[in-house]
Every structure is written in C-alpha cells, then in structure tokens.
Design a protein around this nucleic acid. Structure first.
Lengths: 154, 154
DNA sequence: GTGTCGTTACTCGGATACCCTATGTCCGAGTGTCGAAGG
DNA sequence: CCTTCGACACTCGGACATAGGGTATCCGAGTAACGACAC
C-alpha cells in the first residue's frame, strides 16, 4: 500500500479539526512532508469526492462532507483504487478441462476465499469514520485539536 | 499484492491432490505459467516451511504438512512478507508537540484502526486451510482432483 | 466616503523525471536413476 | 543372477536483466484579495 495513504488520513483528520480550507504547504509543514507530492494525493481525494479544493489566496483543501460521513475506506479507495489487492486472473481457464472464455472469479474457491478476507478488511474500514478516529485521538491527547488548529493558522 | 500469490495458492491445492513431489515445470504447464518464475515463489514457500523440495529425478515440490495444517495466511505471508500493508511511519513524531524519538504505532488512532482492519483480514485467511479450499473446489467440480492428478502424472 | 479597476501574490492542477520493487530469464551445483560391466 | 560402479539426465537454487508503478519535483492556469484611483 502506498505511503501516501498514511499522510492523507492524518491530513483528513487535521482538516476535520481545522474547519476552514488549508493549503497543501501548511499541511505538509506539520510533519515535514514533501508538499508537491502530498498535493497529488489530495487531488485524488478531490476526484473521489472526499475533499473540495479552493483556489487562490485563503484557499486550500477542506472536507466535502461532515467527518462522520467520511469513512477510512473512502480515503483508502480514493488513493489505492477500487480493485482488490488479490487479483484473480482466472488461471483455471487454462487448466485441465478449463473454459478459456469463462471468468472464474465467482466460482474459483481460492478467489472466493481471498475475496471474503478482503471483504472483512473493507467492512472494518467502512465502519470507522474520520469523526471516530478524531474522537479516539482526543481521548489520548485531549488538546491535540487545539494544537493542530494553532499550527495550521499561525 | 503480487500475482505470484494466486499461482502459489493454486499450486498448493494441486500438490495436496498430487500427494507426491511434482517438479515446477509440470505445475507451470498446468496453467501455462512461466516455470522459472514460479520456481522462485515455490522456493519462498520452502523457506517458510510450507513446502519441501526434493532434488534430482523424480523430485520436485511437495507439501511439508497435512493440507489441513496449512492456512492461506501461511502462503500469503511466505510470499508477501510478515509486515502489514499499511506502514505507520510515526509522522506524528514530527508534528506539533510530537516526540521525535517515540514510536507512535501503538498509540496513533489511525495506525490502530488500520491495524485492526488488517487483523480482521488475517483472521479470515488464518481460518481457511488448504484442505478447506480443496473441499470447496471439489464441491463445485467433483472430478477436479482426478483431472489434476492425471495431468500431473501423465 | 464609496465604488471600481488593475495589480499582485497565492493556490491548485497537470505534465515531467527518477528510483525501487515486482516480474521474468538464465545457467550452474547437487542428486537420484539407469544401465553396463564384472564377479 | 547379484553387486558395484560410472555416466547421465533431471531438479532445485541462486545470480542476472527488465518493466511498470510508486515517489518526487517543477512550472503554468486560474482566482481571490488588496490597494490605488476616480467619482
């Protein structure tokens, strides 16, 4: 999985705390990340409908929806793509008595097992929203939101 | 995820049906796979203790344990490595009031959520053995085992 | 004082290089098998 | 007929190329803010 996913998740939580648009340079400066590359990830989130971008001075990125309406799965899918990590290429089609024209993704026992595991993974990610994560973070360090807001608006 | 995982899983099920050592060329020939590269994957399975390799004529690869004692997770970990897909690099350490020396993997809410999801994924894979998969496959096409045995010993 | 306009600086967005890992290929070391020769 | 020996063929195992995607960077298009100017 791309490293940009970690950056994007942290940025989304920070944007939830910020409330107003924040430029990429400011977000990247928080953790010393390469701003231009982070920009690329945030663009993908805009295309996926997770963020909105505001051009010009006082512009930047902001959450499109309420933090409780954005799941971790939304962010991961936006950056990694919708296809599963395990790709069934239907190699059974070339096997003994296999039908070269058929798609075995829905009948091959291996494909089904792997897909079941990924489904469990997706279910966990879909059950956790940015708001949940932000709440957990505040439970651990209650003034994190204030510190982030200060750092982003200084 | 590497494409070799799919090949390795199918080969493991076929080896369970074969019972005796099968050379790489024979396994690759079943599905028209590149034999030398498949060999590389099988070597990794040997290093992980999933398969045993027998050199010389009448040699090849065979399962080290009973098919019911090999889980899908064993095969995946052998090829993809034990580390999680999501890598927490503790970028919080560089953030506001972050401790540059600390490892945030066990306290960062994002890291914990992602790890929880991967744990669910691993649990699913660990719950399915090669024997389970083979049984499911036979439920769909009952003579698959015979066909594979014939193709491997012809 | 107020409205208008031009300049400016700031932001995103896409186009452009680079590098590492997955992918694919090849040849050598080791070993069991088979056959022939000898007893 | 049985044993022994030697050559052979087969297999794994690791070392050697290649390609595609993640990673990183830069520059141009567009826009809102700000200040100056005219009324």
């Amino acid at each position: 999985m791309g490293r940009g996913v970690e950056w994007a998740l942290h940025c989304c939580v920070n944007l939830a705390w910020a409330g107003s648009p924040v430029p990429t340079v400011r977000l990247a400066g928080l953790y010393g990340l390469p701003a231009a590359y982070l920009n690329k990830q945030l663009q993908a989130l805009v295309r996926a409908g997770v963020l909105v971008s505001v051009p010009g001075p006082r512009g930047g990125f902001a959450l499109e929806r309420d933090p409780s309406q954005v799941t971790l799965l939304d962010v991961v899918v936006a950056l990694e793509g919708p296809e599963d990590a395990f790709r069934c290429t239907s190699i059974l089609a070339a096997g003994p008595d296999g039908d070269p024209a058929r798609d075995y993704a829905d009948s091959c026992a291996i494909s089904l097992s792997m897909r079941g595991a990924e489904l469990a993974w997706r279910r966990e990610l879909a059950a956790r929203s940015l708001a949940d994560v932000a709440t957990d973070a505040l439970r651990y360090s209650p003034d994190a939101a204030d510190r982030v807001r200060n750092a982003l608006t200084s």
